[in-house]
Design a protein around this nucleic acid. Structure first.
Lengths: 117, 117
DNA sequence: TACATTAATCGCATATTTGGGATAAACGAA
DNA sequence: TTCGTTTATCCCAAATATGCGATTAATGTA
């Protein structure tokens, strides 16, 4: 889309954080990640049995998570085992942590006395 | 959309996390939040001067952040001062932290030896 | 070779997001 | 009252996201 002449500049962290956040922006992807993260180890398309969604839909969400780098997969025909990509998991953790930690957080703000909307 | 007969069930945390993540899923919203979080305190539509986007677009993104609960605003006609909603900020921080912290994280995974894609 | 299993991809419909111009709303100031 | 300032809304266009059925691809097995 981007019809502006002067495009907005983003830092690498800003863009990377947005990518991770977008991957987490759908509850079913949150659920999938939680399953993968807490299951003994890897996981497979048994997700289809745990989540009442079409196989193609689950596959699509897995692809989104794969592209965001939050999971990785091992082809083991005809099955595929997915698991958390620990390296990027830690990266995401770090980015979110730094993002939410703001030194000025303690500065009380006079804003919001009259709540908007 | 959701044409499935048996809808997927999500926990409150899963849904709330997805809502926060969606709010963070666009780099310009990340940038706005960082500006609000690090600026001495509140902020206003000077965002329009800092970010080369149409005023209506900035306003839209602010609305999205407002609806997600990450910011709050104080009407001070004809200006509006926005600032971080600290309460929900902490809630989001907590949710992301718990999400990324997985006890099983240490379990090495044989997955990904043969990288997929 | 023919078949079964598993998962990705395609095609389609619908919904949501994104961006911006134009306009409206709210208010103080002249 | 009429303007000017600031911000939200409305409207439109284009891009993405979401969901699913059908199909394809890859491989082991009978």
């Amino acid at each position: 889309m981007q019809r502006t002449l002067s495009a907005v500049e983003y830092s690498g962290d800003e863009e990377q954080l947005a990518v991770f956040a977008k991957a987490l922006s759908h509850p079913v992807r949150i659920k999938i990640l939680l399953l993968l993260a807490t299951q003994q180890c890897c996981f497979t398309g048994e997700l289809t049995e745990l989540i009442p969604m079409a196989q193609s839909t689950i596959s699509q969400h897995l692809k989104a998570l794969l592209e965001a780098g939050l999971i990785q997969g091992e082809i083991n025909p005809p099955k595929v085992r997915y698991c958390i990509n620990r390296e990027n998991w830690v990266l995401a953790y770090t980015l979110f942590e730094h993002f939410f930690y703001t030194p000025e957080a303690e500065n009380s703000c006079t804003c919001g006395d009259r709540e908007l909307q």
